[in-house]
Simulated scan of single mutants.
Amino acid sequence: MSETAPRFAAYPSLKGRSVFITGGGSGIGESLVRHFCAQGSRVAFVDIAEAPSRRLVEDIAAAGDPAPLFVPCDLRDVEALKAAVATAAEHNGPIGVLCNNAGNDDRHQTEDVTTAYWDDRMAVNLRHQFFAAQTVRPYMKALGGGSIINFGSITWMVGDPDCPAYVTAKAAVWGLTRALAREFGPERIRVNCMAPGWVMTERQVKLWLTPAGEKQIAERQCLPDRLQPADIARMALFLASDDSLMCSSQQFIVDGGWV
């Protein structure tokens, strides 16, 4: 059964809606792109990796869903990000949904962190979320509302010890969400935070799903199944749709019950 199989919800309000997704070329972002396209949304996404992103566009078009617009972009370049948002709005119409998904959880130890590496981790995992939200706000205001979904992580809640700069950035995403939700709320722009658990993306499986990792999941996750990118995408669909019209300034944890 495909990850966008009919047994899952369809949201009429997402059909034709302009959606902008960061980091959409692989992993969770790829699943977001596929799911929104399957809903009939007009999707644009950015990613630094061009080859897999272009293959994704081809795959979706071949499947018969509306093909997304791919704009190559290194999100550390804020001006390039702003230009990509403008291109997406010109192509798909005013943006009504922003999925601030892009990030990188490379492992590191405190003694190895330099100021340059720290600043880069903030740029990769936090800074672009603010500027993407800042840039889409006028479009959403003109539409009479919108949905911004910032992607955090459960890592800061559980205190993962092997990526302190990443953990710090993801904790800050929650603070950013609360601040923007309060500021943007009068314009009916909803801002929520998604906090995924250990999602079995290709990268995670390849780099870190060791026997010790499997043991950790078995011990700490309440549900026995492995968390998949589609599990995150389906929650994002709900938060983007009109079904969640009164949900804002909240954190939605999808982690299989990590304790």
Rank of each mutant, 00 (worst) to 15 (best):
S13E: 02
I148W: 05
S248N: 03
N92Q: 13
C247S: 08
I154C: 00
L237C: 10
T4R: 13
L180I: 06
A9V: 06
G213A: 14
R76M: 12
G16L: 10
Q39G: 07
D160V: 14
P6C: 10
A233T: 07
F45N: 10
N101P: 00
N92A: 15
M194G: 04
M1E: 00
M122L: 15
P94Q: 13
P66R: 15
R234A: 02
V124E: 07
S26P: 00
A38F: 09
A171Y: 00
Q228Y: 01
E111W: 13
S249E: 00
T4C: 11
A169I: 08
W118G: 02
C193R: 10
D160L: 14
L207E: 06
A88H: 13
R121C: 08
A9P: 01
R76I: 10
G175Y: 06
D162Y: 15
L56Q: 08
F36V: 12
R188L: 12
G64M: 09
V78R: 11
G40R: 11
A172H: 03
D119V: 05
I253R: 01
A63H: 14
N104Y: 03
A89Y: 11
Q251P: 01
W198M: 06
W156F: 14
H35R: 14
V19P: 02
G24M: 03
D112S: 07
C247M: 12
L180C: 10
R107S: 15
F131W: 09
F184A: 12
R42L: 13
A240F: 07
A102Y: 06
Q216E: 06
K82M: 10
V259R: 08
Q109F: 11
Q134W: 08
T201S: 01
V205C: 00
V173P: 02
P229W: 02
N101H: 01
T4H: 10
V85S: 05
E90D: 12
T110M: 15
A61S: 13
N92L: 13
Q204E: 08
L143T: 12
A171I: 04
D120T: 01
E214C: 04
N92I: 12
E111H: 08
G93A: 10
Y117E: 08
R17H: 05
R76L: 06
D77K: 09
A84M: 13
M157D: 05
M157V: 04
